[in-house]
């Protein structure tokens, strides 16, 4: 349903994506992992139209969307939850949800979806009149999810949803991602936390300095020594001198 072919993109003279090929089938959950600065966020920004690719094509549901504006891309159901949550701090929780439903495709279902968001995240209902900037990090992430739900996504792109959050909140994020999956939304999940991403996704891509270097099923990526060395390895110190494979089981 989404296919990037040979996509390159960057910022002025800096090239941040080099000839990237990524494809997703409808209903899949796919992870994109890589270390800081590898180009993960750039990939999502290119898909959602915030930056124009310098080469290659992006197709969504059989239509070329390479040069559409972000507005037109949202209107097709591609919803991007940016890194760092980025809720609108001086709008109330409720107003943030209203902004989520700004695209005309979401207007009709606005009320029903808002109720569903509040069912799923009762904390947001309690705080619906509070300014989003006054919420905790975890609550802001819930709001970012809720705002994305309001947009009626067909393809949901999540940029490091677990970043800087407590483990207990990370669990709630996993639940929210499950919720989207069960309602048939295709998900592209970007994470530095490779273990979390691969436990949620069925497949994954590994990106390094702007290029896709590996693509495989989650199980095989989790066992791949190279992936261990680069992306799961940084957690090794937490397990002292433990065997990486053993650490994966804990």
């Amino acid at each position: 349903m989404l296919r990037l072919s040979n996509v390159s993109a960057g910022y002025g003279a800096v090239t941040a994506l080099r000839k990237v090929d990524i494809s997703l089938e409808a209903g899949e959950v796919v992870a994109l992992i890589g270390s800081n600065g590898a180009g993960k966020s750039t990939a999502l920004r290119t898909i959602s139209g915030l930056i124009r690719p310098t080469a290659g094509t992006i197709e969504f549901q059989g239509e070329v969307i390479t040069n559409l504006s972000p507005e037109q891309i949202v209107a097709r159901g591609i919803v991007h939850v940016p890194e760092g949550r980025r809720v609108f701090p001086r709008l109330s929780v409720q107003q943030n949800l209203t902004v989520g439903a700004f695209s005309p495709r979401a207007h009709g279902k606005e009320k029903a979806t808002r109720e569903r968001v509040f069912e799923l995240f009762p904390r947001l209902y309690e705080r619906r009149r509070q300014l989003a900037g006054s919420l905790s990090g975890g609550e802001q992430q819930m709001l970012a999810f809720g705002r994305a739900m309001m947009a009626q996504p067909v393809l949901l792109m999540l940029d490091e949803p677990s970043l800087g959050l407590a483990p207990i909140v990370v669990e709630e994020i996993a639940n929210a991602i499950d919720y989207f999956r069960e309602s048939g939304v295709t998900i592209l999940l970007v994470e530095q936390n490779a273990e979390l991403a691969l436990s949620l996704a069925t497949r994954g891509y590994v990106i390094e300095t702007g290029s896709i270097v590996l693509s495989d099923s989650s199980d095989r990526l989790l066992e791949n020594p190279k992936v261990w060395a680069s992306y799961l390895g940084e957690q090794e110190w937490e397990f002292a001198d433990g065997d990486p494979a053993q650490a994966a089981n804990t």
Binding site: S48, F88, T98, S103, P104, A151
Partner: peptide
């Protein structure tokens, strides 16, 4: 009106919500 405030607070993210 709410969308205009959102665009003033964070133009990039406002665009991701379909606001021009």
């Amino acid at each position: 009106g709410i969308a205009m405030q959102a665009a003033a607070q964070d133009p990039d993210v406002a665009q991701l919500m379909g606001i021009s």
